[in-house]
Design a protein around this nucleic acid. Structure first.
Lengths: 236, 236
DNA sequence: GCTACGATAGAACAACGTTCGATGCTGTGC
DNA sequence: GCACAGCATCGAACGTTGTTCTATCGTAGC
């Protein structure tokens, strides 16, 4: 697909890319500075080329994001395919979901684009297949299997969206870090009237200094417990 | 907060708005044509005023979206507060989650901005409180309560994100409707090798012509079943 | 009537995605 | 060796967006 082999040296004027390098630099840009930093001009500068050149590889920005997303999902998929099957398909589902979540923690921008377009994202489909295959080992109807995988993906996406929120400017500036920011929100909650907000006060200490991973694991555990019940399995 | 009472008549040149009218028209614009249609120029035209005037009411577009989101969540909250408490807190949680989901089906753009910023979105916090209050009726630790509400909100958001995806251009044009579009994707899946994609083939008929509401209800049911188990309740 | 200020608006700015047209590079047929 | 074709590149320009600047209008209080 991409003919021009990279010959970097010799102080050339014209840059020569490849689909691979475009996607690699796109992901690097997203990793380093988040989604708003991904502009065609910034990407072109990184690639040492012109803006319009990128359009030779992708039709538009949506496609660029789809391909970049699929690119990293490819490596996540490789990790997941490396996981060995255990006796318990639900344990395997948990392990896969956790691997997925960990990858999104490393790349918060993924949350927004994850599983957006299964046409351009063939690795997403492979991942979906891989998750679903575990449900084939459970005693369920096809419809239940379909819904089970949707539910698990939904839990991951639901948590990922939380993580993917662009933090306010003051956090990006480094003036305050994420914990301080959340702590400040917690403080505002504490000042609410306990009569009007009994639940908020009940959980305020849990919210303050909470761990996103714990939160995700708990949500996942509820879904998996429900699934285990549905499959008529007694317990682990 | 907003002094100028609307006196619409008399062929005036200068428009006079109010926070209320700005948010109402913002929501109307979002409802009619989705998030990409919301521009300051389009909004100003609807309001019969100038672009810069909007900046007297909101600091920037993010705040406009936060306030508009909170505005509609206010009416959702009113619906939810109207729901009577039953014997079973989990039944009540289900009813509230379903009401929430229905509202997002009507306004797919909500999914993207839902519960983004609890500072500017005071109704979101009230909604969160309302959900959590049901968990106070269950035998759980504060941490479990916190995670339970997060999980339920996560399921809603996870499903909402699916719904909130801007459909491809051909669907917006009306050339093909959403069912046809999904049916075409299903057809592509059918052509995959069943050896490589056993799960996809297992559930392809379920996917084709599936109902989003069913999908959401199933995911919610798994979480609620897990929660019931955790609370040590025998069953409904 | 004058003034202070709440509220409005047009014009301009910078940044973005995208398109256009021209230009360079490289392998192929003679 | 040379022209040609087409792949790949790039600078400049276009239209649209969020946002800011500055000037202006209208009304409440002296």
């Amino acid at each position: 697909m991409a003919h021009p082999q990279n010959r970097p040296g010799q102080g050339r004027r014209r840059a020569s890319h490849s689909m691979e390098s475009v996607l690699t630099e796109t992901v690097a840009l997203l990793d380093e500075a988040g989604a708003p930093a991904l502009t065609f001009r910034a990407l072109a500068q990184r690639l040492g080329g012109g803006v319009a050149s990128i359009y030779w590889y992708v039709a538009n920005k949506d496609e660029l994001l789809d391909l970049a997303t699929d690119h990293v999902i490819g490596s996540i998929l490789a990790d997941i395919e490396r996981l060995p099957d255990s006796d318990d398909p639900i344990d395997d589902l948990r392990a896969m979901a956790l691997a997925l979540f960990d990858a999104i923690v490393d790349r918060p921008w993924l949350g927004a684009y994850f599983m957006r377009n299964t046409d351009a994202q063939s690795n997403s489909l492979r991942l979906y297949e891989r998750l679903g295959r575990q449900t084939l080992r459970l005693d369920l109807t096809p419809r239940q299997r379909f819904h089970a995988v949707s539910a698990i993906v939904g839990v991951v996406v639901g948590s990922a969206v939380d993580l993917g929120q662009e933090p306010p400017q003051e956090v990006l500036d480094g003036a305050v870090d994420r914990d301080q920011f959340l702590g400040r929100a917690a403080q505002a909650w504490r000042e609410l009237d306990p009569k009007d907000y009994p639940f908020v006060h009940e959980i305020i200490d849990e919210f303050d200094g909470h761990d996103d991973a714990d939160q995700f694991r708990s949500a996942l555990e509820l879904t998996l417990a429900g699934l285990r019940l549905q499959a008529g399995q007694a317990g682990a």
